[in-house]
Write a protein that binds this DNA or RNA. Structure first.
Length: 110
DNA sequence: CAAGTGACAATAA
DNA sequence: TTTATTGCCACTT
C-alpha cells in the first residue's frame, strides 16, 4: 500500500478538530477543512467522518453542511436521529434538517 | 495507467 | 431567490 501517510495526518486532524467541538455547537466541513489548513479538502473532511474509525469519540453529528443542513442517509440511524442528538446537546434547529449556524456555529468568534 | 466516485463548497445562470 | 455546474483531491474500480 504505499499510500501517502499525509492521508492519516489529514484524517487525524479532522478527528481532533471534530472532537473539540463543544456540546451545543456545530461545525461545517469547510470550516474544519480550513482550520486544519486544507480548505480544499472540504469533501474529504466528510470522507474522514464517513470512515469514522472511532465511533463514540467522534461527534460526527456535530458536523454539518455549510448551510447547516444534514444529509438524509448520512447519520448512523438517519437525519432524525442526528437532529435529536443535536437538540439534546442544545443545538437550535431552524428546520427539520437545518441547524441554526448563527447561534451554534463553531469555532465561535470567527 | 485512466476514469469514476464522493458525509462539500463556491460560483454561474 | 433557487437550481445547476465546476472545482477539489484522494480513493476505488
Amino acid at each position: 500500500m504505499a499510500q501517502p501517510q499525509e492521508r492519516e495526518g489529514f484524517f487525524a486532524r479532522v478527528y481532533e478538530t471534530v472532537e473539540q467541538i463543544p456540546e451545543g455547537f456545530v461545525a461545517t466541513y469547510g470550516q474544519i477543512a480550513k482550520l486544519i489548513g486544507e480548505p480544499r479538502r472540504a469533501r474529504y473532511v466528510g470522507y474522514a467522518l464517513h470512515a469514522n474509525p472511532r465511533p463514540g469519540e467522534i461527534p460526527c453529528h456535530r458536523v454539518v453542511f455549510a448551510d447547516g443542513r444534514i444529509c438524509e442517509g448520512f447519520a448512523f440511524g438517519g437525519a432524525e436521529v442526528q437532529r435529536a442528538l443535536l437538540e439534546e446537546e442544545g443545538v437550535v434547529f431552524r428546520d427539520d434538517t437545518h441547524v441554526d449556524l448563527d447561534a451554534c456555529r463553531w469555532p465561535a468568534g470567527l
